[in-house]
Amino acid sequence: MTAAIVADDVSRTYDLDGVSVQALRGVSLTVEPGDYVAIVGTSGSGKSTLMHLLGGLDRPTGGTLLIGGRDVSTLSPDEMAELRNTTIGFVFQSFHLLARTTAQDNVGLPLVYRGAGRRERRERAAAMLERVGLAHRITHRPNQMSGGEQQRVAIARALVTGPSVLLADEPTGNLDSATGQSVLALLESLVDDGVAVVLVTHDRDVAARARRQIVMKDGLISETR
């Protein structure tokens, strides 16, 4: 089986008003299907930059990065969008659900960009909401749901396209600990289904649950546990 993501000596330099800032200085990392990886580090360590690169939201300025076997440096913006749509699922700290839009239509959103019809989107979204335990919230809007429920909707949205990697940026950061635990348990159940889960967190307890911990410091991997 091919690795879901392969990063080889990946660096990322930003140009901020003429001053170049090295956010990543040569990171090598492989994510296999069914991996459960936590990326930890202080703020400014480069962990968010790494996650954006792994998710195909950004491109490295040095090294090679393969997502789903494809070298991102050779892909057009449209092909990158397609890659994100088919291979990657994102979960954010602040959920990023569309307001005034039902849970079902939020979950179905990624399918819009692969040209799925309304009925197909709704059916698949409903199935996915059922899987995350929200079958009863299908027509609710984000402001009618608790934080934990909103994050479950976001996870359902990340999963609806059947991605091989799920990237979660501080998924429990806005949740109380009990709710956070149940969201983590949901993510871990995906690992058993063969989805690679990559968590970015600064919470040691959350990181400790992963099979592998990658500690970032000053744009480099300082330690792998």
């Binding site: 998710g55 939201l57 913006p77 449209d78 969008a81 397609e82 994100r84 749509n85 088919t86 994102f90 990023h96 569309l98 959103l109 990624p110 819009v112 960009y113 692969r114 949205r157 396209t161």
Partner: peptide
């Protein structure tokens, strides 16, 4: 802007 970012993250092309 946030909505645009999210739509792009889940696969919207610039054209979309």
């Amino acid at each position: 802007t946030r909505e645009i970012g999210l739509r792009k993250a889940v696969g919207a092309r610039p054209r979309d």
